[in-house]
Computed example of a mutant assay.
Amino acid sequence: MSDRRLTPANERVAASFLKGQVDAPRYVDGDSRHCGAAAADMVKVPGGSRISQLVHGDAFLALEDRDGFAFGQSQHDGYCGYVRSSDLADAVEQTHWVAVPQTHTYPDADMKLIQSGALYFGSCVCVNGTQGRWSRLHSGTYVPSAHLRPLGDWMIDPAEAAAQFLGTPYLWGGGTRAGIDCSGLVQAAWRACGLDCPRDSDMQEAQLGRALRAAEAPARGDLVFWSGHVGIVTATNMLLHANAFHMSTVYEPLDAAIARIEAAGNGPVTSIRRV
């Protein structure tokens, strides 16, 4: 059976490419949009709990708009769900990405003005001009140019990218500096390095890298998996992870994390994978 998390179909509509694979009253090609908000919650059902987030510029294939929500599929990881229609905008060509944990947007190229909004790490934007040390976005707002990198100018160390989230509050389904969960942290770090990464920890364990052999010691950048949890090795016996015990993104000795998680009844490490 197909994974419902990755199947763009509900009880009313399905993506056209699923014709013959799933039963639906209607098949549509959908509309290509992107996240126009700083971040947009994706929920399993309208009014339900958060399952993921889009950040500004994330592409979203909208299959249906109904009662203020768009149902569809995130185009960077295939995750499906409902996003508020007001958080989506028409797609524009993107040129840069936000390479700091968070930046502000301003109505003009002046840091003394009251900020007009925010953009989070990994957000993609369209720069259509510069003024001094400022970049003018497609929206007409300005951000510090130092906070942007051209698309394709990726980071090279996922562990370094993940470290930008140190101290970020834990948030189920979150993926930004305002709040993030364990698999969201891994995904944000891998995306910042130009690498594809699925959304949930079970998907990441199944798809990323190879399992370490018993004789191999964990090294920087390896991923440590438990049932329903993942962390990033940053140094010998050191783990960086967003977790509900600390309700934050923290460094924790790996052996201490292994012992604590197992003692809490959440089981042993299921694998350590090198990507």
Rank of each mutant, 00 (worst) to 15 (best):
A192S: 13
L171G: 02
L63N: 06
A259D: 11
L166A: 07
F17N: 11
G78D: 04
W154T: 04
A242P: 07
A192C: 04
P46F: 06
G57Y: 09
T95L: 10
S271P: 04
D90P: 09
T236W: 07
A215S: 14
G221L: 08
Y82H: 13
T249I: 08
V275Q: 11
Q207K: 12
C182T: 00
L137W: 10
F225G: 03
Q115L: 11
M42F: 08
V55Y: 02
G175I: 01
N237P: 06
T103R: 05
L195Q: 12
S116G: 11
G167Y: 02
P268M: 07
C197V: 02
T105L: 10
A70D: 03
K19Q: 15
E93W: 07
F165G: 01
W97E: 01
A259K: 12
P8E: 02
Q53E: 15
D29E: 12
D23A: 15
C80Q: 00
S49Q: 14
L63V: 00
V98A: 02
F245D: 12
A59D: 15
Q131T: 10
I156P: 01
H56A: 14
D157Q: 09
C80Y: 04
L113E: 11
M111Q: 11
Q204W: 01
A219V: 13
R210V: 15
G184T: 03
N243Y: 03
G184P: 05
G221R: 07
R210S: 15
A9I: 06
F121Y: 15
L54S: 03
A235K: 02
S74E: 00
D41L: 11
V55C: 09
P268S: 09
A40G: 05
C124R: 14
G132Y: 05
G132C: 07
L119A: 13
A24T: 05
A263N: 08
A89S: 10
M1A: 14
R4K: 14
A211R: 15
G267K: 01
W97C: 01
I272C: 04
S52K: 08
L137Q: 07
A206M: 14
G179K: 06
A264W: 05
P8S: 05
T168I: 01
R136W: 02
A219C: 13
F225I: 05
A146G: 10
H96K: 08
R4W: 14
C80K: 04
V45G: 04
D255H: 13
C182E: 06
L171A: 09
R191N: 09
V230L: 05
A217D: 07
G265P: 05
Y120G: 00
G179V: 03
H34F: 15
T176L: 07
S49A: 12
A235P: 01
R5M: 05
H246A: 13
M111V: 12
S248D: 15
Q115R: 15
P25L: 04
W134V: 08
T7C: 13
S271T: 08
L240A: 06
D3C: 00
Y142Q: 02
A256V: 11
V224C: 09
